[in-house]
Nucleic acid binder design. Structure first.
Lengths: 237, 237
DNA sequence: ATGTCTTTGTGAACGCGTGCACAAAGATGG
DNA sequence: CCATCTTTGTGCACGCGTTCACAAAGACAT
């Protein structure tokens, strides 16, 4: 999982399991593709294949939405797109600030997947005064000291942190103090936030390390290059 | 979780639960920080706090490694760094290719967290001939048609996909055919791969949508702006 | 109207992950 | 050597998530 949920013990939000919520964007993406091809209906089997999940799981997920499929036919694509979008809150506009306009921040600013899903980049912020005013993805980079006023003026509730690890906690504190209640963290640090603030993290290096673990295991099955056992009884120094 | 595991039903790799594997990089990061401050030992309580997890969970995780703490004292930092690194396969060198050198690909190429963890960027590939030869993070961008020879010559087993969604499956097929068995996918598509190939995905937009869901729920608790009920008995068209 | 066929929605069982709580282990001091 | 104190390692119970398998629902043809 490229991600960890907040520490709170799996708060089941309004009866919709967290695991289901995490899959809704996946379904939405597949459904949007179908919608663009003007496909009127899909069966749970087809949609599950497109989303890469088990069909029973998909049906159960939709049952939490109180979603209405038609037995013998399937689900109405347009209706489902609307339902899921509404459930995820994508029918409203979410202003977002991105802090830290390095390579990653610029990539995020340019990422098309945001705008098309109801997310609007309200501002790009960076501590580097040399960057100030430069256009990235058509938006001017503004200085971090404008954070508080920008968050307040635009009613920003979601912040994206793409700063170096060292700056992440301070930026978080300022975002939270300014009123942000959801944070997407790309910096490789554990952020501490008060109750009521959600943090999701994406760590590029962690994902790669998990892959390396499995890769090593695969290699070890074919030819184990390790002479001694896998769990040697070596004592620590 | 920003991530989904491969479809295979939770293959417990050599007795180490998948959930534990996903946390090892987290522990490693915290331990590395302690190591740099020359801290000799940590208790499970301290380390758990630094990693943002429950201490009992951490102790159980380490018990899978056959790890040796000392009762009454804690864990030896250096020893644990070594153990986890070895377990994750980070003591060896992992050549990686990055395909798609747009904003995101460039960000990944520049990301310091890779090199410091045993990952070496063997090559940057892009289909755009205009990019060919340009230096990104000190490496020349090479044309996608060199993929097969580069993978073979460098024994690359891990590929990172940062292309647009439309190109991702084709790139995947070529990577797999060339011998890559682990893929980290940043493109917003479901990739199909043969058995034995691991795929992990990171979808920036999905994370944001999950945050939006919780954000909406929070807002709904204070003042519900929706006049009708949350689960209206509206029939599909 | 009736029968057949497709597909949904869900009851139930199972397995994994989590966290409590405690016994065992070892360090430390007298 | 013994007592005390700290911290690990884990047995156990609980809850969430997943999957199977099937009954109910509806479409469609005759």
């Amino acid at each position: 999982m490229a991600t960890g949920r907040s520490h709170r013990p799996a708060t089941r939000s309004r009866g919709i399991p967290e695991a289901t919520v995490a899959r809704l964007p996946l379904y939405l993406r597949a459904l949007t593709a179908l919608s663009e091809r003007s496909v009127p209906t899909v069966s749970s089997e087809e949609l599950a294949a497109a989303a890469g999940v088990n069909s029973a799981k998909l049906r159960k997920d939709f049952s939490y939405l109180g979603s209405y499929g038609t037995r013998g036919v399937g689900y109405d694509v347009e209706y489902l797109v609307y339902q899921i979008s509404r459930e995820l809150g994508l029918t409203q506009d979410w202003p977002v600030v991105i802090v830290g306009i390095g390579n990653l921040g610029a990539a995020l600013a340019n990422y098309g997947g945001f705008a098309s899903r109801g997310f609007r980049v309200a501002a790009l912020l960076d501590a580097d005064t040399a960057l100030a005013g430069r256009l990235v993805a058509g938006l001017p980079v503004r200085h971090i000291d404008e954070l508080e006023s920008i968050v307040a003026d635009n009613q920003v509730s979601i912040g994206v942190i793409a700063t170096p690890a060292g700056a992440a906690q301070e930026v978080t504190d300022r975002l939270v103090a300014a009123g942000v209640t959801s944070i997407l963290n790309f910096a490789p640090t554990v952020l501490s936030v008060p109750d009521g603030v959600d943090v999701r993290k994406v760590d590029l290096s962690i994902e790669l390390q998990i892959l390396a673990f499995h890769e090593q295991r695969k290699a070890g099955e074919d030819d184990r290059q390790e002479p001694d056992g896998d769990v040697p009884a070596v004592m620590p120094a």
